[in-house]
Design a protein around this nucleic acid. Structure first.
Lengths: 229, 229
DNA sequence: AATATCAATATTGTCGACAATACACTGCCA
DNA sequence: TGGCAGTGTATTGTCGACAATATTGATATT
């Protein structure tokens, strides 16, 4: 699928790699529901493999915070909570603000040109179908900025941890937002600050952009809770 | 050892837990040198266990960035570089600035009282022996602030990733610093901002504190390189 | 009816063996 | 002499079985 193609596809060398990838997607898409218990024998049987590589895969899923493992009890998909999502957004503000600042310093002119092209592509997509942009285009943009930071540890932190959780929350909480046109303008402004090599402004705008998203998400979740209560 | 007691000791339930803990310390302390290849059969033999739990432990070490694993080739302790250390410091500025801001909002009066007590304890230790403070007291202080953020994801990110790497770099690069008295004053100022519930100031001071440490580290590393060249 | 206890069953952690892959060494050729 | 190919060995990935631990269901007690 194109989402994994755009955002550094996992290299599949071993059975564990393959199974980990499949389980990541199954969890994010809710095929294995949040909070549910994971059975090693059942999954191993389903994949037609032994429990050894399955446990390797589970270990990696634990590392990217999609599951929690308890010794002698087993693994369980994480429970999604408003609190946790807000926590993640706060961390995103912090780290992506840094990424934007570094991107303003580090991105090549070619990188920035490609970022512009990506924005143009997103502009066309918004006119046709907003849902595609909401699902993966936004993440694509953010990931490009993080890559532009040239801070490999930051890129790893995002790729191995935050990315999957953000996808999971988006998928499960069905975040269709009225905010798209405004968010796109903010993307453009961030890129402009980067193009001007103004790190401080880029950081400010990115932090503010994610902060607005957080407030929007908080509001939506509160409304969602009000409905279900 | 008291460093692990203060900073959330790993709960030992399985052989893999135990081996992971031992390997973490062996890597941080240089018993297994940076860059070196890890042999599963040799380590399993040394610990008197099968390769199964050893691989579990290696998977966890990979998750906390102490080793890198390549399929069908094996595991290797990470190589320490100036670039990587600077990357980590930049991320620390970002995340610990956030932590300090949240701590100013979230810490209870009791928490703050205990933080004061910790500072007083460190003051006494500085008078007697600066090396203890340099090794773990500083981390202790920082970890308290991060815990005070009450952002569980942030605490996990620190505990599972940054903490080990910081220890590793400190141990291997032998960071004895002339900066201790000044750094302690900065700690006091950060706590004061938190006590005043001034999140913006706490964040500013913490970011600046770590930025100063980064510059100090960069300078030391440059001097170190000059000597060895 | 609710709670506690016990035994059976299922699951998780670990073991040792086999299959697949990479590495190291030797010999041959240009 | 240097590079390449082939072979043997070591290491990594996976398998299935056994041991240890937790869970579930049935029964007894209050």
């Amino acid at each position: 699928m194109s989402d994994t193609q755009e955002n550094e596809p996992m290299v599949i060398s071993t059975i564990a790699d393959k199974v980990c990838n499949k389980l990541q997607n199954a969890i994010v898409e809710g095929v294995i529901p949040a909070g549910s218990k994971i059975s090693e024998p059942a999954l191993a049987s389903e994949f037609g493999i032994s429990r050894g590589p399955l446990r390797e895969a589970l270990s990696r899923l634990e590392a990217c915070n999609l599951i929690e493992r308890t010794p002698n009890v087993g693994a369980r998909v994480v429970t999604l909570t408003r609190e946790h999502l807000v926590e993640i957004y706060l961390i995103r503000e912090s780290l992506e603000g840094l990424a934007a600042r570094l991107a303003a310093e580090k991105m090549s002119d070619k990188d920035i040109f490609e970022l512009d092209a990506l924005l143009e592509k997103h502009k066309q997509q918004i006119k046709q179908d907003q849902s595609y942009y909401q699902k993966e285009g936004d993440m694509d943009f953010h990931f490009r900025i993080i890559k532009g930071s040239k801070n490999s540890h930051l890129i790893d932190m995002f790729s191995n941890d935050l990315y999957h959780l953000i996808r999971l929350y988006r998928y499960q909480f069905g975040m269709v937002s009225k905010r798209v046109p405004r968010a796109f303008v903010e993307h453009e402004q961030i890129v402009d600050a980067i193009r001007q090599r103004d790190g401080e402004l880029a950081q400010f705008l990115m932090t503010r952009h994610i902060s607005s998203s957080r407030r929007n998400v908080e509001k939506m979740l509160d409304e969602h809770l009000a409905i279900t209560d």
